[in-house]
Design a protein around this nucleic acid. Structure first.
Lengths: 170, 170
DNA sequence: TGAAACTTTCAGATAGTTTTGAAATTATTG
DNA sequence: CAATAATTTCAAAACTATCTGAAAGTTTCA
């Protein structure tokens, strides 16, 4: 197997995974390409490598920049923009955790909190059961929130060391 | 606010969240409805409550059953099928974690493992850097895998007690 | 300043997903 | 067995997301 084939496979697979992660295929492919490219890349180079349009590259690169996973690079004496991908896997993971928390968890916390604070008479069995479910979900969501916050703030080796030791102990 | 309104809001919001979780709106709505319904529901009742077609209910309920979040119930003297939702939030969470791990994490582990085992000559800087990235991702994925496995197996109170205490200590 | 180089936008095209609803199938009852 | 009730299937329609490519906008430089 040659390195170029291996990289190609990585990029293609990452694109396919994207669909299961709520990320569009092209964005996942661009991100994969940026992670494995030591050098910064121009729009043209991304277009060619992935066989996609200029508009598509522009849109997705911009979003990756907004996500903090890709950065603009200015090259001395060059007119066009170049982009470089974050290479630190732990930083990438924390960033993704942060973004997914904001998209997937925070809105749920808000909804549950809102319902908990409703005044719902009469206090019959139906109401009690509903509020119990909402409350259970809320407590779970708060715990997950704290765990994710912990991960985002943690130092990698410390975190895994402690957590995996803890889970093993059981 | 009345209980029926509150339940309606819960179902609608859950449906909207679905889109951000890689779950289609209808399935998320049906699941929400099943979680908050004490009684088992028939296809007809779900159709009416959510204003959706028979085929849609059938498909999504079947999938929820496959996911282990909803169960078929046979009613004495009744010809039609009834369905009841799992109500235990921790069980639901573990089930979802299991499903998402299978969909989102396991394929990545396989890819990374596969690439790690490739023979990629020559061992130049480019190859080394690529394999380093793959290796970093692999180690991270293995750690996440262990964490998720730990969660799936853990007893709820024990798990949160320990983990949150750990994160607080830092 | 103005022409070239490059980036951004966005309307329409394409591709992908979800839903419907009627027909086919299966199960139950008298 | 035949009638009835319910479930399942699936092709077509509706809807949604994504991508293209040309036009508009911006920046650079002589």
């Amino acid at each position: 197997m040659q390195i170029q084939q291996a990289k190609h496979q990585f990029v293609q697979a990452w694109g396919a995974f994207g669909s299961h992660w709520g990320v569009n295929k092209t964005m996942a492919q661009i991100h994969a390409l940026m992670m494995i490219s030591e050098e910064s890349l121009s729009t043209e180079e991304i277009m060619e490598t992935l066989a996609i349009s200029r508009g598509n590259v522009n849109m997705n690169v911009r979003e990756l920049i907004d996500m903090g996973l890709v950065f603009k690079v200015f090259k001395q004496g060059e007119r066009r923009d170049y982009f470089i991908g974050e290479k630190d896997v732990w930083k990438i993971a924390k960033q993704v955790a942060k973004l997914r928390k904001a998209r997937e968890l925070d809105p749920v916390l808000n909804l549950l909190q809102e319902i908990r604070q409703m005044d719902l008479p009469p206090k019959n069995e139906e109401v009690k059961r509903f509020l119990k479910l909402v409350d259970d979900f809320y407590k779970l969501a708060v715990n997950i929130d704290r765990l994710v916050e912990g991960i985002i703030k943690a130092e990698e080796s410390w975190f895994w060391d402690k957590v995996l030791k803890l889970l093993a102990k059981k």
